[in-house]
Design a protein around this nucleic acid. Structure first.
Lengths: 201, 201
DNA sequence: CTTGCATTTTACCGATCGGTCAACTAGTAT
DNA sequence: ATACTAGTTGACCGATCGGTAAAATGCAAG
């Protein structure tokens, strides 16, 4: 069981940075096996297909985020709107450190995969959408508390949350186009100016 | 000359929808040749490499946009901020019509390609960045005129323009994740709430 | 009629793609 | 000791990848 778990996690460890830094189609099973130091047949013992592998990779990234600085950012002890500042900061420093190590801005793997595969694979698309939906609810929860605290004027928390998530993904996209995490630093803070007003039903 | 031009444009006509609806890596030269009704050797007579093809495809899409509804949206006769409304509307209706025909939201080919290839090919990245830079200047020009007309309070037109472009790309990304152009309709108008204030130097 | 050039076809290159299969190893439970 | 099973290996599948080279075609100018 331990050995099995070890091989499986070595596969994931080899796959994660490759999918993040290149693309789904550009990373082959064979290369991943070489990176993990195993044979291809062994790979297919743990993952029925390449798609299943990338789903596991998505889960690992999502867990890392959720338990890492996203958990720190959305700390209930912080004033609501400061959590958003914190999140932007964290994204900036993360991308910056990746660039320092790797030489390139890799961006958000969820966004990367979404634009690459979501027209070709509805199962992957659904998986990625679930990630975004969870992220959106973190934002909307925070916005709700900010409104309740009187920090910001009432607004449509659901739609504003979605708008903020979209903005964050868009900023990361433009930063990747420039291979420059400073774009995040310059544009990130404007996320708090986004507002979708309540429907005046 | 005519025949040559015809073959070349048939190649482009076959390549464009394929790159738009799938991805760079997922579309092969052979398939494009079949779509264009030619042999592979003929393809390489007109394009030295796959990268050169996709650069030509990018140019064609950029021209289409620039001469199509982007030109209409940024009509100097319109009040500045209405041009932005118009652009969002146009993007929405475009994606919606694509979905009706194709069954899927394809999103923005520039954004799609950026996230797929920009870590792997600096030449393509530079090409895509140039597209975004041009788009940004359309926004900043518009914002400058809106400020001059007193429609909006003074702000950092360059950074706000970049933020708006990022937001547009991000909204399209989320819409693609949901395979639903209505996301554009719901979130698009909030683009005008984005502001980056002037540095109080 | 011929030379020359652009275009096109056909066949081919080595490499890689995702995935399968049968044989083999090793540890565990009976 | 034996049977079972999880894990692993290495060889293999047909298909496709981007790209090349040489021969054939067609056309136009001299």
């Amino acid at each position: 069981m331990n050995i099995a778990t070890d091989t499986r996690s070595r596969i994931l460890a080899a796959a994660k940075p490759r999918f993040h830094s290149r693309s789904y189609a550009n990373v082959g099973i064979q290369e991943i096996c070489e990176g993990a130091g195993i044979q291809k047949g062994s790979f297919y013992h743990f993952f029925p297909s390449k798609r299943d592998l990338v789903m596991a990779v998505i889960d690992e990234f999502a867990d890392e985020w959720a338990n890492g600085f996203v958990a720190e950012a959305f700390d209930p002890a912080l004033p609501p709107m400061e959590r958003i500042d914190y999140l932007i900061d964290a994204a900036y420093f993360w991308q910056k450190s990746i660039k320092q190590v790797h030489g390139r801005m890799l961006g958000c793997i969820f966004g990367n995969l979404t634009l690459e595969v979501s027209t070709q694979d509805d199962i992957l698309r659904a998986k990625l959408l679930a990630i975004f939906t969870r992220a959106k609810s973190r934002f909307s929860e925070t916005l709700g508390q900010a409104v309740a605290a009187g920090t910001i004027a009432p607004l449509d928390t659901e739609l504003t949350a979605e708008a903020m998530l979209a903005y964050l993904e868009g900023v990361i996209l433009l930063a990747k186009a420039q291979n420059d995490p400073e774009v995040l630093y310059r544009l990130g803070p404007a996320i708090k100016t986004l507002r979708v007003e309540l429907k005046t039903a």
